[in-house]
Simulated assay, not measured.
Amino acid sequence: MPVLLRSRLRSAPLLALVLAAGAALSGCGSLDGASNRLSGLVTPYKPEVVQGNFVSKEQVEALQPGMSRLQVRDVLGTPLLASLFHADRWDYVFTLRRQGVAPQSYKLVLFFKGDELERFEGDTMPSETEFVARVDTGRKPGKVPVLEASEEALAKFPPARDTGKDAPAAEAPLPASYPPLEPSAR
C-alpha cells in the first residue's frame, strides 16, 4: 500500500470523531430553541412541599395558659425555633408549597414565664381535615373494600391440614464457653 493511503486511513477515524462532535454541538443550539417552544406544552413536576411543624386548630385549642413546657411539647411537638436569646419564646412555623398555588405560611408564637405558658398568638390554623384536603387534592377517593370474610366465603377453601409444623422447633443448646472479646495479652 502506498504511504499516502496508509496515512489517510489512520486519520479517517479521527476525522469522523471530529465531525460527529461538531454535529452534536450544533444540535445543542437547535434543542434549546425547541425546548423554548415546548415550554408551554410540557411543565416539569414540582412536588408539594410541607416544611416546618404542622400545628392544627385542634392542637391550638388544647393549649391553656399555665401549662408546663413539657405539656406544651406533648401537645404541639418540638418547636421549630427555640432561641437562646429568647428562652421564653417558642416559634412554630410551617409552609405549604404547591404547584400553581401561592405558598401558604402559618406561624404560632408561644410565650412562657419561667416554665409555664403565659400566652400564645399567631395565624388562624387549619383543622386537620382542612389541611389534609389542601394537601390531598387531585386524588379521587376510591371505594374501600370490605376486609371481613363471611362464613360462606371461608367455606370455599379447604380446611387446613395438621402437618406437625406447628410444634415449636427444638432449640440448639447454648455453647459451654464463648470466645474472648479481646485478644489475649502477648
Rank of each mutant, 00 (worst) to 15 (best):
M1C: 15
P2A: 11
V3E: 08
L4C: 05
L5S: 08
L5C: 10
R6C: 09
R6K: 14
S7R: 07
L9V: 09
R10E: 06
A12Y: 13
P13E: 05
A16D: 10
A16C: 09
A16V: 10
V18Y: 05
L19K: 10
A21K: 00
A21C: 15
A21E: 11
A21I: 13
G22H: 03
A23P: 00
G27K: 02
C28H: 10
G29R: 11
S30R: 15
L31P: 00
A34M: 13
A34I: 14
S35E: 12
N36T: 11
R37N: 10
R37I: 11
R37W: 07
L38Y: 09
S39F: 01
S39T: 10
G40F: 00
L41K: 13
L41N: 10
V42I: 15
T43H: 13
T43P: 03
Y45R: 07
K46S: 11
E48C: 04
V49S: 01
F54V: 10
S56N: 04
E58T: 08
A62M: 14
L63V: 02
Q64P: 01
P65A: 11
P65C: 01
G66N: 06
G66S: 05
M67W: 09
M67F: 06
M67A: 08
S68Q: 04
Q71D: 14
V72L: 10
V72K: 02
R73V: 09
D74A: 14
D74P: 00
D74Y: 06
V75K: 03
G77Y: 10
P79L: 05
L80P: 01
L81Q: 08
S83T: 09
S83V: 13
L84M: 10
H86V: 08
D88C: 07
R89I: 15
W90D: 12
Y92D: 06
F94G: 02
L96D: 02
R97V: 02
R97L: 03
Q99M: 07
Q99A: 15
Q99P: 05
G100C: 07
G100W: 10
V101Y: 12
A102W: 03
P103L: 01
Q104I: 00
L108P: 05
L108S: 05
L108A: 03
V109L: 04
F112H: 08
K113T: 15
G114K: 05
D115I: 11
E116T: 13
E118I: 00
E118H: 12
R119Q: 14
R119K: 13
R119H: 13
E121C: 02
G122L: 08
T124N: 00
T124P: 05
T124G: 14
P126E: 01
S127A: 14
E128W: 07
T129G: 00
E130C: 04
E130Q: 12
F131C: 02
V132W: 08
R134V: 02
R134L: 15
R134E: 06
V135F: 05
V135I: 14
D136L: 12
T137P: 01
G138K: 05
P141A: 12
K143Y: 00
V144T: 12
A149V: 00
E152W: 01
A153F: 14
L154P: 05
K156H: 06
P158D: 04
P158E: 03
P159M: 07
A160S: 12
R161E: 05
P168W: 03
A169W: 09
P173N: 02
L174D: 13
L174Y: 13
P175R: 01
A176W: 12
Y178Q: 11
P179I: 02
P179S: 12
P180W: 00
P180L: 11
L181H: 04
E182N: 06
E182C: 07
S184T: 14
